[in-house]
Design a protein around this nucleic acid. Structure first.
Lengths: 350, 350
DNA sequence: ACGCACATCGGCAACGTTCCCGATAACGTT
DNA sequence: AACGTTATCGGGAACGTTGCCGATGTGCGT
């Protein structure tokens, strides 16, 4: 099972490497008979073009770079799954980088991906990233880039996101319709696109139902360990206290659920809880967790498809735009609907 | 931010590329002064060696291939996380392949990894794989290979696994000590190493406590969708019926929990449930799930470390062996300990 | 018969890097 | 003074592939 090169074929058939090369890629200026011989010989030797040499030549490397903040994260691992599936079908390999939520590492990752001559870049920004100059460099070099999930409005490239506004609006409205009035929102860094969109959806739902927006009910996480407990404590010390939590990520939803359990707060009797997540065990949690489902895998697939379209068809691929993948509200026990919503402060019974 | 080559430095300093190359890698036969000039110029131009050219030259590609059955799987995504962390620290990139539990795709992945000239291969076998000739080819080519989790005794290479026997033994014994006598074992394909080891641990615990091994209580899954429900139905139709379930994977544990819920079986009153998993939400499930915890991330780290040791130090790296990472039994509500174990067949109350 | 177009193929350079070898000078040895 | 050493560097090939240009041969028109 050794590896044969174009030279071996040339030697075997007493041809030049050029001829073999052109025969292999079906050039018109090669005798059909010669072409047949070459093809057959290549088949016989199980010839496979050397992707490294092709990359060096400057053509395509048939690899795409994927940069995510964390692999061990329900959302990203499923997104990568979608990416890999599409890439495999279209003959590309996936080189994975983790930014670990660090701006420094993200820049390093971008440079490494470039020096590996990836044909395109799929990236979800780290939570530290506010300046996107490093990506602008890549785009200027004419390397296709598609952002997904954690995107940036400053870049004029295709972006693929969940319908964050719509999902947040639906979640918030659901809480309101089930009688909640003081809805806390636990989210992540405020400068991220997804944070802003979800916050906007949350505000819009409040406004629609005539509820006041209270900045005190918003808490911004920082991806640190065990940060959710203190946030919950702060919120529950408010007056009046919140009667619902809307969390913006997998990590926060799980952390919040754990923190509420530890503090002996009953869900949904004391507080409702709804997450913006991608957990496939949400219905098995205690209580089963209402969620806005993000189609992580589909986001990955769409992003990969758009990227490869750009790579293979730079001229007439679909125009740059922002693709919004719909989210879905799934109501479970953590936000049990209360038949007759009671006024704030009244005792709630179930 | 364009990319400079060794030639640019040579032209800049009126030197030959050879001299620059050797200066850069600190050859002794270069004038220290010249060396300084080259270094400084490289620094100034932000020179980065081209990994593609290095790969073509035949030296190292500083990339390792990772082949897993599925990325979107708690165990593997965490293992990959560990792998990537180590690889990054030691200056390697990770190219990921999914075999999708298919033998065909696994072989294709191996070939692709080879043609990408990875410096080493980390692989967890697909559930379809029984023949490992494709890996033997790789090993014969002197490319370092390390197996993890799903390993094969037929290959004389370093393997990194969880302590499957010990974990299964502990889980089974825990069930026995909490009064269970008819313990069903839901596991995966029987020819996989992890299946056999866990089954052996299960049997050993039964034997130690004088319980009979009953083949009827064992069910082998096939990674199909919704396969757990029928398995549970079959098991619960046995006479006498099982009073406990021990599952061998994340997927089976979650599927089993779901199936038991749907069938209105109370956990742990009707049946106990313990999983061999990597779920970090196990304590939030309903009921909280007792598990044997597999240190997925650590397995990935150790495997990556051993592989890179082999790559960089083929002669005197640690000898080939099988590294067993300890597992940990975590008891939660799904296997509540019953104070006075009652004889088989008697009514159980809680 | 001459030239010309066409068909078919080979030679060479190039991508960025390393390595083997040879070249040049300065210096010391006998 | 002739030669060998040593220090320092350049030239060229090689890794596998493609693309440009040129070479060769064949057949045709005039």
């Amino acid at each position: 099972m050794e590896t044969f090169t174009i030279k071996d074929i040339a030697r075997e058939l007493n041809l030049s490497t050029s001829t073999v090369s052109r025969a292999l890629r079906g050039s018109y200026e090669i005798n059909p008979e010669t072409k047949r011989l070459v093809m057959e010989c290549a088949e016989r030797l199980n010839y496979r073009p050397n992707p490294i040499a092709l990359s060096l030549k400057g053509s395509s490397s048939r690899a795409i770079g994927v940069i995510v903040p964390q692999i061990a994260n329900y959302f990203f691992s499923q997104a990568i799954n979608g990416i890999e599936a599409i890439a495999y079908n279209r003959g590309y390999h996936v080189i994975i980088f983790q930014s670990q939520e660090s701006y420094e590492r993200e820049m390093a990752n971008v440079n490494q991906a470039m020096s590996r001559k990836v044909d395109g870049l799929l990236i979800s920004l780290s939570s530290e990233t506010s300046d996107v100059a490093h990506l602008r460099d890549v785009i200027d070099k004419n390397v296709p880039v598609v952002l997904f999930d954690r995107v940036s409005a400053e870049l004029n490239v295709t972006q693929v996101v969940a319908d964050n506004f719509g999902g947040a609006f639906a979640a918030t409205e659901h809480l309101i319709l089930s009688g909640r009035r003081r809805i806390a929102h636990l989210t992540i860094q405020p400068w991220l696109s997804i944070t802003q969109e979800r916050l906007a959806g949350y505000r819009a739902a409040l406004e629609k139902h005539g509820l006041e927006f209270d900045e005190n009910l918003i808490r911004y996480g920082t991806f640190g360990p065990d940060e959710v407990g203190p946030m919950v404590d702060e919120l529950m010390a408010l007056d009046p206290i919140p009667d619902a939590f809307f969390t913006a990520s997998d990590r926060l939803a799980v952390g919040c659920l754990k923190a509420l359990h530890q503090r002996q707060l009953a869900i949904p009797e004391d507080v409702s809880l709804i997450g913006f997540t991608n957990l496939n065990v949400a219905d098995l949690l205690s209580p089963s967790l209402s969620t806005v489902v993000q189609p992580a895998q589909e986001i990955g697939q769409v992003a990969a498809e758009r990227l490869i379209d750009l790579i293979e068809n730079k001229q007439r691929a679909k125009p740059v735009d922002t693709v919004k993948i719909p989210t879905e509200l799934v109501v479970r026990d953590s936000t049990n609907f209360v038949e007759h919503a009671e006024p704030l402060g009244a005792a709630r019974t179930l």
